[in-house]
């Protein structure tokens, strides 16, 4: 088990290097640092000196991969690639355009992101599984059919409309909750959180309910269900005792991969509701074309995804005794 775990961690390294190469290519090879400098400085202040200064202040004036001017190890380490990409492995994210420490910022913003993402995830999962089970219990009836139609309808509505509509109805017209904002005290922040959480759940419920329904229906066609019925078990017993437990295997292993990424928060919800989390941080960085922050978030997102993959494999062994890791 431990050996498997270590080996998976070891496999993650080349993937992260690949991720870094892709982002590096996007940020430094498609456009030279000169282009970025011109972009950031604006049309009026572009002079060769200003560009040099901008590059020097951010360490973009070094060669891309190999520094001929330096000696020994420095030939490799004193380059943009090493400075901007490889240092990410050590958790050194550098500074954003406005000069703040990115890692510091990430630590501060993780909390608010989790405050939205965790309740959304847990309540949403519970609600979705219950709804899917209900549809399966009433399969073939009008309830099931309308349920599926509603699911497809919800899937067809852009999440932007849920957010804008939710804000308009509940915050502006009914005035039940504040339109946007956040408090760091978790016990008083709940009235800021309730609408974003509800909106995120509604926006994603259609697709996942339909998916889980398919999973449960697949389980219902299995032989063990027929055996259980033949034994004379009631429909509810079969559903909750057998189908639910076996259907949870694909569901849980499917959702485990997103658990680490919950830290990243939700881009849209956070920016609409003014939550100072990592999602709105990313959006602001994209809007301000702050490449250092985007690079850091790409790296962080990839790391969390890979952690999710490893956790998925581990969770298989926990819920499915047929699987052994070697």
């Amino acid at each position: 088990m431990l050996r498997y775990f270590l080996r998976r961690l070891f496999y993650a390294v080349p993937i992260l290097i690949g991720v870094n190469l892709i982002t590096f290519a996007l940020f430094f090879m498609v456009n030279s640092p000169d282009d970025m400098a011109r972009m950031q400085l604006g049309v009026k202040r572009v002079t060769p000196e200003a560009i040099q200064q901008w590059k020097a202040a951010r360490g973009y004036d070094k060669p891309l991969f190999i520094n001929d001017a330096a000696a020994g190890v420095q030939q490799v380490t004193d380059t943009i690639f090493f400075d901007k990409s490889m240092r990410l492995f050590a958790g050194e994210f550098g500074r954003s355009e406005d000069g703040r420490e990115i890692s510091q910022e990430i630590r501060q913003r993780m909390g608010p992101s989790l405050a939205i993402a965790l309740p959304t995830f847990l309540i949403g999962l519970g609600l979705t599984i219950s709804l899917a089970l209900m549809l399966v219990l009433f399969r073939g009836t009008w309830l099931d059919r309308t349920g599926v139609v509603i699911c497809v309808g919800l899937m067809s509505i852009s999440s932007l409309f849920f957010i804008i509509g939710g804000q308009f109805v509940f915050a502006r017209v009914l005035k039940l909750v504040p339109i946007s904002g956040y408090e760091s005290n978790p016990w008083t922040a709940w009235h800021f959180l309730i609408l974003p959480v509800a909106v995120s759940i509604v926006a994603s419920i259609g697709g996942s309910t339909r998916w889980y329904r398919t999973i449960f229906l697949e389980e219902i066609g299995r032989d063990y269900v027929r055996t259980a019925r033949a034994k004379g078990l009631s429909d509810a017993r079969v559903l909750f005792g057998h189908v639910l437990r076996n259907g949870l295997i694909p569901i849980l292993t499917g959702v485990v991969v997103v658990i680490p990424s919950l830290f990243l928060g939700s881009l849209l919800v956070e920016s609409f509701f003014g939550i100072p989390g990592l999602g709105s941080y990313t959006i602001d960085a994209i809007a301000a074309q702050d490449f250092a922050v985007v690079r850091a978030m790409v790296f962080l997102g990839s790391v969390l995804y890979l952690v999710g993959l490893i956790l998925t494999d581990l969770s298989y062994t926990l819920v499915d005794p047929r699987i052994r890791l070697k």
């Binding site: 996007l26 990313t282 985007v294 978030m297 997102g301 990839s302 995804y305």
Partner: peptide
């Protein structure tokens, strides 16, 4: 697929 889709597109 390890790179978050939105960020890759943004980059």
């Amino acid at each position: 697929s390890a790179i978050p889709g939105v960020l890759l597109i943004a980059a």
